[in-house]
Design a protein around this nucleic acid. Sequence first.
DNA 1: ATACAGTTTAACCAAATGGTTAACAAAGGA
DNA 2: TCCTTTGTTAACCATTTGGTTAAACTGTAT
Lengths: 205, 205
Amino acid sequence: MAKIKIEKSTEDKILAAAKKIFISKGMFGARMQDIADEAGINKALLHYYFRSKEKLFEVIFIEAAQKLFPKINSIFESDMPLFEKIRNFCEEYLTVMMENPYLPSFVVNEINRDPQNFIKKIWNKQHFPKPQKFLEQIEREVKKKTIKKISPLDLLINLISLSIFPFVAKSMIQSVIGLDELQFRAVMEKRKKDIAEFIIASIKK
Amino acid sequence: MAKIKIEKSTEDKILAAAKKIFISKGMFGARMQDIADEAGINKALLHYYFRSKEKLFEVIFIEAAQKLFPKINSIFESDMPLFEKIRNFCEEYLTVMMENPYLPSFVVNEINRDPQNFIKKIWNKQHFPKPQKFLEQIEREVKKKTIKKISPLDLLINLISLSIFPFVAKSMIQSVIGLDELQFRAVMEKRKKDIAEFIIASIKK
DNA sequence: ATACAGTTTAACCAAATGGTTAACAAAGGA
DNA sequence: TCCTTTGTTAACCATTTGGTTAAACTGTAT
């Protein structure tokens, strides 16, 4: 059996290293030297491939934000009935979160650091979340009286809160409740279905 | 009409300035010079009153964490019936959040930065959240079949998620939905009651 | 006044940090 | 083989940053 050596290109090594360091320490906490060490290369190479810390950060941030947002849209804009949409959203979203548990706190945090910049960076990148259609769908269901009266915006915020927050507050929850990595995963795995039913139970007539 | 000059002590000026800077920029992003400028004093004075950046930060962080946690306990440990407890929690908690909208993202973020340190700092400070009694109460209600079957931990996580997340993601929500400061406040004000009813509707039999 | 403690400041320092440079290696192409 | 382009490095630089020091100022008790 041949020993397969996957020669990652330098650029990929840098991106992988930068991702790890930026996500765990944030834009300010990350040091270019840390990234270089993590990638096993010289610091000057970072500047050879990506001109500055900010440029490098932007690449990582946009990649992260795109992972966080686009799936939302495909569901938001589909033609599924409301309950199915909610179930789908929770299932898919929690799956992405579990594969990238540090993503939400990274993205949310960097948005807070500089909201203006965030809009500029993500706007036009076609991955900006567009919940309009989803909101209208809720509005319609309320008017048809097929679900209880609720503000569409509130329902959206609830849906997102229940999906994302546990990952943003992962360390806090683990500290307070006392869950190890495995237990946390198990709880989240179960929540894929539970959140959806929790929401549906609340609005079903 | 006499001009009332409220002479804040230097220490208080420092604390106020540090709070503002740390909360808006985080431990890494904050600069001692920024804090000194904000307080209108010399940088050396910061070190005269608080030995190091880390010490100063710790004071601010603990104060923030204490504002975020203690009210939870007084409600968690009270003898109220479950629904009343949920209503109370939402009302009180959102009120605190609206008075300190940047607190949750600050605290959550710094906990993520260094979870070990967080436990060491807050543990023993008697302000650590103790949800045990609340969890047992839910368990009892489920067994008595007065509410629908739900994992107590899940219900707790849902309650916290719905209360805190909108503030953690404030900038994001404002960007995506397009809410100004006033509109955001109005939505949150309304949520004080709505979240509680949303939860209760979901678990009521 | 004098002395003395607590407070405040300007000037300074060493370490860290993002970024640059110039020299060197590797890899083709002629 | 020589030349050119691309990739990589060690050494260096300017600036920033947390922290220190010694001198100056302020009020107050003697």
